[in-house]
Design a protein around this nucleic acid. Structure first.
Lengths: 193, 193
DNA sequence: GTGTTAATGAAATGATCGTTCCAAAATTAA
DNA sequence: TTAATTTTGGAACGATCATTTCATTAACAC
């Protein structure tokens, strides 16, 4: 019956993610998206509804990529130490690997929009819940394995680690020295032992 | 000779700061500033040059206010423990006291613009240098007083603390629970002892 | 008071904003 | 091949963007 969507949706989201990541939500125009995706204006609106619509899909796309990375890292971890170090190592690699020093799209989005748009706010709350659940799980296992201390409960340590990751992403925007960043991570994790 | 500037510059910067803080740089329009400051468009351009011009002054104004707060807190500190706790306590109060949960203007600005505008980037680098110098000084004294350990040198600890403060500001945007935030701070500082 | 100078008010600048509209092109079921 | 359906291309929408222009108003030195 109908003509089918011809473009590669993943590819388009990839391109759109790059633009939003580099320029932020308010700094990105529809024209920027048209240029980056090689899609027509109408096609964007037809497929994503609005600027906020495509941005929400971009956020989900970005989050999915990060989750996959974490998943792989955790799969190779033999104990809680490996696991938590994998999380921070992947974050560090993401920081070091980005020559533009854009920071984390989700952290940036939180800073730009969480206090203004309810849809964004609740997306990020869910993202936070997932991150904290993951960290809590690692801490919990580490405490059962007697590798981590029990000075704080897993949820408290998870919120601490989540906070540290956000701080790391912010610092990574201006500090290019890998050794410095590794040192911060070392200090952050020391309290667990 | 000339008619003199009639408006209260501090008052105008105060109002402009509120707007930029709430909506971000790209989210704020010149019309927003006209409405908030009760100044005429021409007067804004006449006195501040451009949107980026007034924003730079807003950043300096905001930074100055924060510095004064830190200064007062540090003046009352008898030792390094008091000092570092004052810094985090003031940060916590700033987070808790803001019902809009806007986060820190400078952290937000870093996330939005540091990778795009060179003037902004260098402002924030200087701000970071000052913050780290202040923290380094506290750590240094604490180590001399034998209150803090010497596992890391003052500069390394300072960067760690700076990173933690940024993380705290990000977490504070969505987490309203003061107890949780205090707990994070406790965990952050534990590594020093 | 007069002359000088700069701040002000209000309108207008061209560019760009996000979004819509509609005819044309393209795809599939029949 | 035809009919049905939806994507596409491109122009256009009104609104808003940051900035400029200029006549008017107000303050100071003399």
């Amino acid at each position: 019956m109908p003509k089918v969507e011809t473009f590669n949706r993943t590819n388009v989201l990839q391109k759109a993610t790059e633009v939003f990541h580099k320029k932020g939500y308010n700094g990105t125009s529809m024209q920027d998206l048209v240029d980056a995706t090689d899609l027509n204006r109408s096609s964007i609106y037809n497929s994503f509804g609005s600027k906020l619509g495509i941005f929400m899909e971009v956020l989900a796309f970005y989050q999915q990529g990060a989750n996959q990375n974490f998943g792989k890292g955790l799969a190779e971890a033999y104990n809680a130490t490996d696991a938590i170090e994998a999380i921070f190592k992947l974050t560090l690699n993401d920081i070091i690997g980005d020559d533009d020093r854009k920071g984390c799209l989700i952290v940036n989005c939180k800073s730009e929009m969480a206090n203004q748009d309810h849809t964004i706010k609740s997306f990020i709350e869910k993202n936070q819940d997932r991150m904290i659940a993951m960290l809590e799980d690692i801490v919990s296992k580490g405490q059962m394995e007697k590798i981590f201390n029990t000075d704080q409960n897993p949820n408290q340590y998870a919120l601490y680690l989540y906070t540290s990751i956000q701080g790391l992403r912010m610092t990574g925007i201006l500090n290019k020295n890998e050794e410095d960043l590794q040192n911060i991570i070392k200090t952050v994790l020391k309290v667990l032992y």
